[in-house]
Nucleic acid binder design. Sequence first.
DNA 1: CCTAGAATGATGACATGTCAACGACTTCGC
DNA 2: GCGAAGTCGTTGACATGTCATCATTCTAGG
Lengths: 134, 134
Amino acid sequence: MTTSVRAGTARDLADTGLSEPDYEVLSTLVERPGTTSTLHEQAAKMGWSRSRLSRHASRMEARGLIARAPDPADGRGCLLSLTAAGRAALRDATPTHLESVRRRFADRLDADDLRDLLRIAGKLDDGDTSPVSG
Amino acid sequence: MTTSVRAGTARDLADTGLSEPDYEVLSTLVERPGTTSTLHEQAAKMGWSRSRLSRHASRMEARGLIARAPDPADGRGCLLSLTAAGRAALRDATPTHLESVRRRFADRLDADDLRDLLRIAGKLDDGDTSPVSG
DNA sequence: CCTAGAATGATGACATGTCAACGACTTCGC
DNA sequence: GCGAAGTCGTTGACATGTCATCATTCTAGG
């Protein structure tokens, strides 16, 4: 079911020229002061590995959606920031995406559904990540 | 939540040397007469694209888990079949995988949870796959 | 028989993601 | 200050998946 919903929203997003990871990066970055963030912080905020974000940032940088700059406060770090093109792409995609999510997800569930879903999610996400011992 | 459960079962499976796609292919193939199937049929049965299965079959073939042979009944087709190694890998992985799924999923949900989850899944999977129009 | 069109599986070009390094840099304890 | 240890972002090597396209081969209609 997750698959079905995601496939739908991803398809809708694709029409705007952004993938879901693109959208996540842009929408998380735009919430930052100066629409700028350290790669590390950004990755942490998104729950991504630094490696993953570094790779995706490279692709998005090549497409002109974001820019990289050295972090003046930490010689190891780099700052990611939205470009004008990135801001524009996000602005174009947001209404479509929100509408898509609403139509494919939110509108289909009532309050009971959401409550049950959260309850179940809580049980499944819970606790141990250790492998099967036997 | 799906992500969390899948990550866990994938990790458990990895300990047996198989990925989740590997396991899917092997477990679907073993149900076939002669543990053999056309790539096309196999893909349809699994809900995969031919392309995807072709690619994955190549990787699994390289690892000796399955074998390809020309289809005597259709010059375009090819037959995928389990090798002894593939059968052994599946035999080794199955108990671990079932235990893993049970522990990470089934054991955590009661009858009500399952009922609710199916109800919600039904609503989300439902119907239209068309893009957002406006 | 013969040809137009459909189906099959493979593949090039990419997008996405993981993991284990690595070099550069910072920090901590002394 | 200085060296050990940790952190940062990047990268090579791969696994996985998509899409469009291709050569083959099959099939249906004449």
